[in-house]
Computed example of a mutant assay.
Amino acid sequence: MKLHLTQAAGNQLITGHAPEWVEVNAQRYHGSLLVLPNLLVTDWQVADFDALTVADFERIAELAPEVVLLGTGDKHRFIHPRLTTSLTARGIPVECMTTAAACRTYNILMAEDRHVAAALLVNPAAS
């Protein structure tokens, strides 16, 4: 699915997605990634939802976002609170949703100048 926004003002904009890829600023990525308005992290080495660890969320907490949108893949799933203690301790909420919903929501919040982080689980084998 292609996503459209009139302008990104130099920010990281999610321009499309499918189960096996996410497109940021018209560049396609085939693995899980972290997207913030001013930063794109392509080496977020999370294979799938069941592989998420406390360390994965500690890495996000170090980026100090205002809110985290966790894109859980094709299915809406909820994470165990013990995984996000580093975020909770800093008062950073985590919203779980499908990756497609996280992409759309990220663009809306980013366009509102919010310091949002989209933690997107992408399954390159989903094709």
Score class of each variant (00 low, 15 high):
residue 65 P to M: 02
residue 65 P to T: 08
residue 123 N to G: 05
residue 38 N to C: 11
residue 32 S to P: 07
residue 29 Y to E: 07
residue 101 A to F: 06
residue 38 N to F: 12
residue 51 A to E: 11
residue 34 L to K: 04
residue 97 M to H: 02
residue 38 N to I: 09
residue 75 K to T: 12
residue 118 A to Q: 08
residue 99 T to W: 03
residue 126 A to P: 09
residue 107 N to C: 05
residue 125 A to R: 14
residue 109 L to F: 13
residue 69 L to Y: 05
residue 63 L to A: 14
residue 84 T to H: 01
residue 112 E to M: 11
residue 70 L to C: 07
residue 92 I to F: 04
residue 123 N to I: 03
residue 66 E to R: 12
residue 118 A to G: 15
residue 55 A to M: 14
residue 46 V to L: 03
residue 16 G to S: 13
residue 66 E to I: 02
residue 96 C to A: 13
residue 116 V to W: 02
residue 103 C to W: 02
residue 25 N to W: 05
residue 42 T to C: 09
residue 18 A to K: 07
residue 25 N to Y: 04
residue 2 K to E: 10
residue 74 D to L: 14
residue 119 A to E: 06
residue 65 P to E: 06
residue 114 R to Y: 15
residue 20 E to Y: 15
residue 109 L to V: 02
residue 94 V to E: 03
residue 111 A to E: 11
residue 78 F to P: 03
residue 63 L to R: 13
residue 36 L to Q: 08
residue 109 L to D: 04
residue 19 P to A: 08
residue 94 V to Q: 01
residue 81 P to A: 01
residue 114 R to H: 14
residue 33 L to G: 02
residue 70 L to K: 02
residue 99 T to P: 04
residue 7 Q to A: 13
residue 92 I to K: 00
residue 25 N to I: 02
residue 72 T to V: 10
residue 4 H to F: 14
residue 23 E to G: 04
residue 95 E to G: 02
residue 45 Q to C: 01
residue 72 T to W: 02
residue 71 G to H: 00
residue 113 D to F: 13
residue 77 R to Y: 12
residue 21 W to E: 12
residue 88 T to K: 07
residue 80 H to G: 08
residue 24 V to S: 04
residue 103 C to R: 01
residue 80 H to M: 10
residue 86 S to K: 02
residue 5 L to G: 09
residue 123 N to H: 15
residue 45 Q to M: 06
residue 73 G to M: 03
residue 126 A to R: 08
residue 2 K to R: 15
residue 75 K to E: 13
residue 68 V to K: 00
residue 42 T to H: 08
residue 102 A to H: 04
residue 43 D to W: 05
residue 61 A to I: 05
residue 2 K to P: 00
residue 45 Q to I: 00
residue 104 R to F: 06
residue 89 A to H: 07
residue 105 T to M: 03
residue 108 I to L: 15
residue 24 V to W: 00
residue 66 E to P: 01
residue 85 T to N: 07
residue 101 A to C: 13
residue 122 V to K: 03
residue 102 A to T: 08
residue 20 E to G: 13
residue 77 R to K: 15
residue 103 C to S: 05
residue 22 V to P: 00
residue 56 D to E: 09
residue 7 Q to L: 07
residue 11 N to L: 10
residue 20 E to L: 11
residue 2 K to L: 12
residue 54 V to C: 10
residue 96 C to H: 06
residue 126 A to Y: 09
residue 12 Q to W: 11
residue 36 L to V: 02
residue 18 A to L: 08
residue 28 R to I: 08
residue 78 F to C: 09
residue 71 G to A: 01
residue 78 F to R: 06
residue 58 E to C: 08
residue 122 V to T: 01
residue 68 V to A: 12
residue 70 L to S: 04
residue 106 Y to F: 13
